[in-house]
Structure formats: structure tokens, C-alpha cells
């Protein structure tokens, strides 16, 4: 579905958007207002009304997508229109402004709109790209199995390290008790854990193993193999968490900024008439 929302109904919403943009740009080109082009001319009011209606409709998507089977349009119609019409606002609202920007609440509303569209554009990119990468990264098994695999490896490590010196056993214990997946927002987004206890254990056990001989050396080598496999699995899980975080994080900007934009938009509309 993720890429199909762009081609949905044979680009119907792209065509509608291009028609709106062509009309807006043509009107702006031939309109010769008194003074500079601005939001207070008949065309300014028209483009402003259109922009405001689009913003409210686009924001309503957040409500609509929680109601299944309501109205004539499919959710895909909404999603496809949401993408194209949302992007078209960059042009329609800019023409409404007449390219007049300043340090005021009106430009604040415009800036919030740009940020909402920017975060939405990232969201679209994320939905186009990351689900595929995510399934490639997951490979055959479901992620729940992978977690159990990791846990099993921790148990295997205890077993193998039982007769090994404490310096190794301590590392194995830390690799079990301190290994974490994800964490802070940044840790999840980075997909890496530079202080991963399992990675540290792998490196140090590998070094220690070189000093051992006999039974200890065999056990240490087996331990290194298990730890290496565990670290590899952890890397894949962390990558998976990263994709998930990237698929989620933009909404933490898109949605609060949309609500802020609705507030700023309301203030914009009220105040231009309050001080008419």
C-alpha cells in the first residue's frame, strides 16, 4: 500500500493537485493587485480560504483514519489526497502570502505549515523505504523468535563459561544482565549501542581466549562463537528497532506541529480581521 497511495486510482489526486496548482499560479500571474500581492486582495482571500480548507481537511485525516468504512472515500483516497494536496500547500499558501514574510504570527503559521509538510514528506519517504529494508533485515524469522534466540545464547554462554575462569564468567554475566536493545529515542534511532555489554564481552573473551590452553581454550573458543552469533543477532534487532523508530519518529513532529499550526492558523485568521 505504501507506494501505491501515490499511484492510487491512476494518479487521480496528483491530477487534481496539478489542476489546483495550475489555476492558482495562473491567477497569481495575471492578477495585478493594488500595491504588492498580498493576502488581502480578492485572490489573496481566495488562496487563503483554499489553503485553510486544505489544512483542515488534511488534519481531519488524523480523525478519519481511526474510523473505518465511513464516507464514500476509501482510506487510500484520503492518504493519496493527503500526500499530494499537502505538498500543494507549499505553493498555494506561498501565493496567498504574496511572498511577504516577516517576524509575526502569520509567518509563524506559514513556518509551522512548512515544518508539518516537511515532516510529512519524511514520513512518506519512511513508508516508501523502511518497511522493505525492515523485512530484508528480519530475514526468515519473526522478531519474537530472535529475542528468544538471544536469550538462549545467554544461557548457552553461562553453560560454556561455567568452568572458565571468573574473568571470563564475569563478562558473560555482564553480557546477559547488561545487554539492552533500544533505549533512549536517540539510541533507538541510531540503531547502535556503543556500550553493548555483549559486544564488549565478545571482544574481551576473544582476547582472553588466546591465553588459555587445553580444555579452557576449547571452551573459550566455543564461547566466542556463541557470543559472536549473539552480537550479530543483536545488531539485526537494533537495526529493526531503528527502522521502527524512523517510521514512528516523524509523527512526533507531524502531529504536534499540525495542532500548533491549527492554532496559529486560527490566530492568523482572527487577527487580520481584528486589526482590519
Amino acid at each position: 500500500m505504501h507506494s501505491s497511495i501515490l499511484v492510487f486510482r491512476n494518479f487521480r489526486y496528483l491530477k487534481i493537485t496539478l489542476a489546483i496548482l495550475a489555476a492558482a499560479i495562473l491567477a497569481y500571474a495575471i492578477h495585478d493587485p493594488l500595491g504588492k500581492p498580498n493576502g488581502g486582495t480578492w485572490l489573496g482571500y481566495t488562496l487563503g480560504g483554499l489553503s485553510a480548507a486544505l489544512i483542515v481537511w488534511l488534519a481531519w485525516f488524523g480523525v478519519r483514519k481511526r474510523r473505518y468504512g465511513v464516507g464514500k472515500l476509501l482510506l487510500e483516497d484520503w492518504a493519496s489526497g493527503h500526500v499530494y494536496l499537502g505538498l500543494s500547500l507549499l505553493i498555494v499558501a506561498t501565493l496567498h502570502s504574496g511572498f511577504q514574510f516577516g517576524i509575526n504570527v502569520h509567518t509563524l503559521a506559514y513556518a509551522l505549515m512548512v515544518l508539518v509538510i516537511g515532516s510529512g514528506a519524511f514520513g512518506l519517504y519512511a513508508y516508501m523505504r523502511y518497511p522493505r529494508l525492515r523485512s530484508v533485515n528480519r530475514g526468515e524469522g519473526a522478531l519474537g523468535d530472535v529475542w528468544a534466540l538471544v536469550a538462549g545464547m545467554s544461557r548457552d554462554c553461562y553453560e560454556i563459561a561455567r568452568d572458565l575462569p571468573d574473568e571470563v564468567y564475569t563478562l558473560v554475566e555482564a553480557a546477559d544482565k547488561e545487554t539492552a536493545i533500544g533505549g533512549s529515542v536517540w539510541r533507538q534511532l541510531s540503531g547502535k549501542d556503543p556500550k553493548c555489554a555483549s559486544t564488549r564481552a565478545l571482544q574481551q573473551v576473544r582476547d582472553l581466549a588466546e591465553r588459555y590452553s587445553g580444555r579452557d581454550a576449547d571452551a573459550a573458543r566455543r564461547l566466542v562463537r556463541v557470543l559472536a552469533r549473539k552480537v550479530e543477532l543483536l545488531t539485526r534487532i537494533r537495526k529493526d528497532i531503528q527502522y521502527k523508530a524512523l517510521l514512528d519518529i516523524w509523527l512526533y513532529f507531524h502531529i504536534p506541529l499540525t495542532v500548533a499550526l491549527l492554532g496559529a492558523l486560527a490566530i492568523h485568521i482572527v487577527t487580520v480581521f481584528l486589526y482590519w
Binding site: 536469550a151 546477559d176 545487554t179 539492552a180 536493545i181 533500544g182 533505549g183 529515542v185 492554532g263
Partner: peptide
């Protein structure tokens, strides 16, 4: 248990850390 330990150590969803989208939205508004 090793699986429980791993799960307890891990935070894998953004909504588990920091604030919610809803509270961010209300605050900004």
C-alpha cells in the same frame, strides 16, 4: 531468566520514552 532480563533492559518503542504526541500537541497549542 535471560529472556526476561533482556526484555526488562530494553526499550524498543518511542512511546515508551519521553512524552506522548498528544501532550506535545497540547503543549505547543
Amino acid at each position: 531468566d535471560t529472556l526476561e532480563t533482556l526484555r526488562a533492559n530494553s526499550t524498543t518503542r518511542i512511546e515508551q520514552v519521553g512524552v506522548s504526541k498528544r501532550s506535545l500537541a497540547w503543549a505547543a497549542l
